[in-house]
């Protein structure tokens, strides 16, 4: 079995460019009756192909729920959420798992590296899930680890790596299978500022020149400078979307002409 990449079409926009994710009126409620908690109250959000979008907001505002929906690991209740052209709710669990395996990469706050596997083995996991042979998977993992500056640590267990190194391994794991969407949950919160900045630099570096879209949930204002756009959430809604310092009209990254009411760049307040 070979790795399939870019299997799902993105959603082309009339003004050029394309969307990796389009959420419209997405709601999600946990629990029932008096215990019900409305985590998402009608989220409208677009993520453009190749951009780095940061989701920010106070604790409990729905950021984690939203990226769970976008990543296809949680069903929303109402509205529509198309990821790389697919409404993941329409897919069976196995097809959705296969979709995630092909198209989505994950970077977690606590790294979630399997402690019994070496760095290279951890990186190879997404490839093994897709059925790539162990030897080929390990070769590609070692190659990628070298690219993220850990070429000499491929045989180390995660516990023997620093926090920054572990997050580099996690990033390598997130992109080893050439996904089209990388979902990062608080990737710098367990790291000091300097290391956090390096991690974001690395994320931008690995995404450069590819069609990889990044959705990064963060509380850390010191890394906002790396964003193409910043979506601010509050009380289950996207309140405001601002252009980040990386917003670049000349490349089109994050600078598309969006219809009013959509999550447009430029710091527009949303209803």
């Amino acid at each position: 079995m070979t790795t399939q990449t870019h299997a799902s079409p993105s959603m082309d926009l009339p003004g050029g460019g394309s969307l990796a994710v389009r959420c419209q009126g997405v709601t999600k409620t946990y629990g029932k009756g008096d215990a019900a908690v409305r985590a998402l109250r009608g989220v409208d959000l677009d993520v453009y192909t190749g951009e780095l979008l940061m989701l920010v907001g106070p604790s409990g505002c729905g950021k984690t729920t939203l990226i769970s929906v976008i990543a296809g690991v949680l069903d929303h209740d109402e509205g529509a959420c198309r990821v790389l052209g697919e409404d993941l709710r329409d897919l069976s669990p196995n097809k959705r798992a296969a979709f995630r395996a092909r198209n989505i990469g994950f970077v977690f706050q606590a790294f979630n590296l399997i402690p019994t596997l070496t760095a290279a083995e951890n990186v190879s996991v997404p490839l093994l899930i897709q059925g790539v042979g162990r030897r080929e998977a390990m070769a590609r993992s070692r190659e990628l680890l070298a690219k993220v500056g850990l070429g000499d640590r491929t045989h180390e267990m995660p516990t023997r790596l620093s926090g920054g190194q572990q997050q580099r391994v996690a990033i390598a794991r997130g992109i080893v299978h050439n996904p089209r969407l990388l979902v990062c949950d608080e990737p710098t919160s367990a790291l000091d500022h300097k290391t956090g900045q390096r991690i974001l630099e690395l994320l931008r570096e690995v995404a450069a020149g590819t069609q990889l879209s990044l959705v990064v949930v963060t509380h850390d204002p010191r890394i906002f400078e790396f964003a193409d756009r910043i979506a601010e959430m509050d009380d289950g809604r996207v309140r405001r979307i601002a252009e980040g310092q990386h917003h670049d009209h000349s490349t089109g990254r994050g600078g598309f002409d969006i219809a009013p009411g959509d999550s447009s760049p430029g710091g527009k307040e949303q209803a």
Binding site: F99, V125, I129, Q130
Partner: peptide
């Protein structure tokens, strides 16, 4: 984590 990454 494996399940999120696509393991069935």
């Amino acid at each position: 984590t494996l399940k999120a990454m696509g393991a069935t």
